[in-house]
Amino acid sequence: MKKLNEMKLTIPSRSVNEGFARSAVAAFTALADPTVEELGDLKTAVSEAVTNCIVHAYRDTCGRIKIDAALYEGGIIKVRIKDFGCGIADIEKAMTALYTTAGEERSGLGFTVMESFTDKLQVRSAPGRGTTVTLTKYLNRKDAK
């Protein structure tokens, strides 16, 4: 798979950066001429991943979030969102729809939305060692979700 373009971004886990992060990824993705639909889907998925870093990984502390996005031949876009926070002990449970540890104002749908709006979702995590979420989206494809 040939890489055509890439970008890297590091931001502190402040909630004001949620909008910035999804817009930055959208601006990068826009270079690959996606449909409005595809761009919106990716934006939503990125927003969920970054929010997880802020709400869960770092909770009441502030830490680094690294985002890198790459465009590959054939219109494949991969976005990796990495934190160095608390990590997830039970990934399967965390990914269960409606499950949340963050109280009643959080819907527990973060991972469910990421899964629904991308073509592939990969989550790697270990307690105390942070979490890496990789979102893959196929652009301009008829078989894409």
């Binding site: 999804r22 934006k43 939503t44 927003s47 969920e48 929010t51 009643e104 104002e105 959080r106 819907s107 749908l109 973060g110 469910t112 939305v113």
Partner: peptide, 16 residues
């Protein structure tokens, strides 16, 4: 113009 699952949490909280 945009919402993520925080919009769901917002509706859930207010309806409760």
């Amino acid at each position: 113009s945009f919402m993520d699952s925080s919009g769901v949490g917002f509706v859930m909280g207010r309806s409760k």
